[in-house]
């Protein structure tokens, strides 16, 4: 018999005392990983006035919660959070640490990984345990699906976006152990989050939209981008973008769909002037019906959708809009 493996950890995240969905999703999937490794699932929860919240993490599948409950932890404080998790990880030796691909997670995860001298895989779309009991983190890249491993160092770390794994069915009868953690007294305190300001999101929410129109590099210029935005408007759709479109400055970072952006699963997805790069396509793999409009018949996007239109989008989109309006007009009259 080998020695027993360390637990699977999830760094839970809360905003205004509400635990984010991704934290539950990671605990849910963490259970599967833990079963394959014959170990437990544990969550780290840092915040203030969070006494009652560990219950939710147990219901999602957690066995143990390390709870830091202190006014100093109310909002994300990089130095303190890193210090607490580093110390705890060195003590408890987790086998795996999963972190949500949120703004906080994307900063905190590399801080922890570097402190623990270990590897960290970004924005995974699947996590499995292989035959050697090693974590395989799957990421799409360059037309293939890569499995990244961290064979020799522990913990194995990965970040995962909201929506990659399903919400676990809560089991209110599950219970677990709460271990309180203290705020360390000796930390440098060279950095402080003074305030967290939330603004009303602009435009339609991509994650809850039933129709998503996305544009890519093929949009060509801001005028072209507005044409694509016009299609979204007619369909009452949320407007998304690929990374090159964000790079060009046509679209905001928050509208980026894909592995390092948002994961969406609308009823209808229409991709305009984009090439079907996997980094983008994994973000919409949950769509019911997918359409692509691209003037290059050889574009890889035409291998990944339900309906393809080979045409110059600048010419096609206005005609398409007219036909949609015609249909919408008919709906109103009858």
């Amino acid at each position: 018999m080998g020695k027993s493996r360390g637990p699977v950890w999830v760094i839970a995240e809360q905003i205004d005392c509400r635990i984010l969905e991704v934290s539950f999703q990671l605990i849910g999937h963490g259970r599967k990983l833990a079963a394959a490794l014959d170990t437990t699932v544990e969550a780290i929860l840092l915040g203030h006035k969070m006494e009652e919240h560990p219950r939710q993490l147990f219901a999602a599948g957690g066995d143990r919660v390390y709870l830091g409950n202190d006014p100093e932890l109310a909002v994300y404080q990089p130095e303190i959070y890193t210090e607490i998790i580093e110390k705890l990880a060195k003590e408890r030796q987790p086998e795996i640490i999963l972190v949500g691909s949120t703004a906080m997670g994307r900063e905190l995860a590399p801080l922890i990984a570097a402190r623990l001298d270990t590897g960290l895989t970004a924005h995974c779309i699947d996590l499995v345990i292989d035959g050697n009991k090693v974590l395989e983190s799957r990421i799409p890249a360059y037309g293939g699906l890569l499995s990244i491993i961290c064979p020799d160092r522990r913990p194995q770390m990965a970040t995962i976006a909201t929506g990659v794994f399903p919400n676990p069915e809560p089991d209110e009868s599950r219970t677990g152990e709460i271990i309180p953690i203290e705020v360390p007294k000796k930390i440098p305190r060279r950095i402080q989050t003074l305030e967290v300001v939330r603004e009303e999101p602009e435009g339609m929410d991509l994650e809850s939209a039933t129709i998503v129109v996305a544009g890519g590099a093929g949009a060509g210029d801001p005028a072209g981008w507005r044409k694509i935005a016009g299609l979204a408007e007619v369909l009452n759709a949320a407007l998304g973008a690929t990374r090159p479109a964000v790079d060009e400055g046509w679209a905001a970072l928050e509208t980026m769909i894909g592995q390092s952006g948002k994961m969406v699963s609308p009823e209808l997805y229409i991709g305009v002037g984009l090439s079907g790069e996997l980094q983008h396509m994994v973000g919409i793999s949950g769509a019911k019906i997918m359409v692509a409009i691209n003037n290059d018949a050889k574009s890889p996007v035409f291998e990944q959708v339900d309906y393809g239109i080979v045409d110059d989008y600048r010419e096609f989109v206005p005609v398409f809009i007219e036909k949609i309006k015609e249909y919408q007009g008919k709906l109103k009259t009858c």
């Binding site: 293939g144 990244i148 064979p151 959708v305 393809g308 045409d311």
Partner: peptide, 26 residues
């Protein structure tokens, strides 16, 4: 610490239909 272990191709599960005809028809 991290490395690529395997590479798999991603196959689409969708049946692709390319719509033919004039612009209006498409």
């Amino acid at each position: 610490p991290s490395m690529v272990s395997t590479i798999a191709s991603m196959d689409s599960r969708r049946k692709v239909e390319i719509l033919e005809g004039k612009r209006e028809e498409k």
